[in-house]
Design a protein around this nucleic acid. Sequence first.
DNA 1: CAGAATATTCAATACACACGAAACGTTACT
DNA 2: AGTAACGTTTCGTGTGTATTGAATATTCTG
Lengths: 195, 195
Amino acid sequence: MSDQTHDPVLLTNATLQNVHHTMLDGLGQLADYFGFSKVVGQLYGALLLSDQPLCLDDLVEQLDISKANASMNMRTLENMGMVRQVWVRGSSSRRKYYEAEVDFWQIIGNVLSGREMRDLDRAISVMSENVSRLRSQREQMSAEDAARAEVYIDRIEKMQALFHFAQTVIASILARTLAEGMNSAETHGHDNGKV
Amino acid sequence: MSDQTHDPVLLTNATLQNVHHTMLDGLGQLADYFGFSKVVGQLYGALLLSDQPLCLDDLVEQLDISKANASMNMRTLENMGMVRQVWVRGSSSRRKYYEAEVDFWQIIGNVLSGREMRDLDRAISVMSENVSRLRSQREQMSAEDAARAEVYIDRIEKMQALFHFAQTVIASILARTLAEGMNSAETHGHDNGKV
DNA sequence: CAGAATATTCAATACACACGAAACGTTACT
DNA sequence: AGTAACGTTTCGTGTGTATTGAATATTCTG
């Protein structure tokens, strides 16, 4: 026994097959929509709709993709906190098994606290700096340039207001996520350790 | 006579040049981040920081891109409602002039009311349909398949809850956008007890 | 410590996308 | 109408990115 994997998990029922395919397809489109490969959506869907953790070979077989592709995209899922590794005791050897993170607020909090928030902060500070420089040098400009500076300041501040709002929204989401993390026993914390 | 365009709009001041370049660069990165061409962001930035409407040739010259590129990406900006055409009286011939839409809530409302909302609705309905089918056929399945159906239902409904929340958020943004026809200033009352 | 099993990385290929040049269609001016 | 100006579409080309099979690294078992 113990073929290469623990259990092929065949779908014998037509309805189950259809739902499975529909979900993976939709999640693939969604991932594509957000700029990722559609494979990441499919991988997540396969794990989401599985009652047991799956290993790489399971996913390779299920989605009919190469192992390299699966490995690469699983790493992006890990970096986003959308999947986590789980150790299955019955496995013949040291196999990595994954399961989907189903707490979506946790996921959103992870991704927002990472790159997005930093980019946003940087953009806002760049705008602030630009406005400051324009204000300070406005006096020394020609009338024509000063008029242009006024336009710049006006438009940049309008955009900055939007970014500040986005910052507020993201901060509230993060607060919500953190408040909800107390319930979860999993100490997810900061998993970003450089390899 | 006249040059091909009305006014080259040269930036004589170093600070203005720097701010201009910084903004266009940042907006280019932002556009790229959202899956568009960076030219889209640069075009919008050029219009945003201009006190006068600009024609295609102005933009071509300013960004040093081909006319085809400018034309194509300007259309996507138009489709997103981020720029609008404006007719300039003094132009020698029939030239299209564009200006940037500066009401960002208007823009967000436009894009959300378009594709996003429909995709969201469709995704939710697909999930509902799938859950319904699973529930109705659950009885006729084998015990094993029924157990899987339960897992499917549970996970799909979890995700559906998230999508419903997103739907609510988008709906509230759309409501705000529609109500803003009269609101002139940048005072967006921070009505975000709920995002 | 040898050997096998598994995940990861690497280089080559395939694919898709964006760009620019030029032809085309359309509109206004004389 | 003729003509000039302008915007749009199309086509060939190049560049970047994703996917794959093969090679490498790592880890567990006997």
